[in-house]
């Protein structure tokens, strides 16, 4: 079996993988990073979103072998080393942007990618960016609010509009 080597959450990792091993399987099963979830098999739900070389990708739609040499960040890797939540994670808690938590890792990783590209997104931009992240619990209200709050905007005023 070919060997892959990559950096995951700042740590070098490597493993033997079959060609068909998906990145999400490598993360969940080989590295025991079970924060990245699988919610579908048609690449639509976004529960599996991670960052590969700084870009949001669906880890269920990429082979582990394709991440050779890449820098991968998962939900486990974004809080401070002492466990302090980052601004997006904190905003999700403050604004109740999660219920069952299953879509949450993908939501947070997509939100992080959005804010990196667009530090002050409008409501419409947030909603548009989340096209590939399905949440069944929240009706999206508090997710959108949380992301806008994480970008430093006064969300209570916006949501009351």
């Amino acid at each position: 079996m070919p060997r892959v080597t990559m950096t995951v959450n700042g740590k070098p990792v490597s493993g033997e993988v079959e060609g068909r091993r998906l990145l999400v399987q490598f993360l969940r099963e080989d590295l025991d990073l079970t924060g990245t979830h699988v919610g579908c098999d048609t690449s639509q739900c976004g529960a599996c979103v991670v960052h590969v070389d700084g870009h949001a990708v669906k880890a269920c739609t990429m082979f582990a072998a394709e991440a050779e040499g890449a820098d991968v960040t998962t939900i486990e890797g974004i809080a401070a080393p002492d466990g302090t939540l980052n601004a997006i994670q904190q905003a999700f808690q403050d604004h109740h942007g999660l219920q069952c938590g299953f879509c949450t890792p993908g939501m947070v990783m997509s939100a992080a990618a959005l804010l990196a590209e667009n530090p002050k997104p409008s409501e419409a931009e947030v909603r548009d960016y989340l096209e590939g992240n399905i949440c069944r619990c929240t009706g999206y209200h508090n997710i959108v609010k949380a992301i806008m709050a994480a970008s430093g905007q006064d969300v209570n005023a916006i949501a009351a509009e």
Partner: peptide, 9 residues
Amino acid sequence: IGDPAVRNR
């Protein structure tokens, strides 16, 4: 096309 993660690949 699709969503941001799809567009990145």
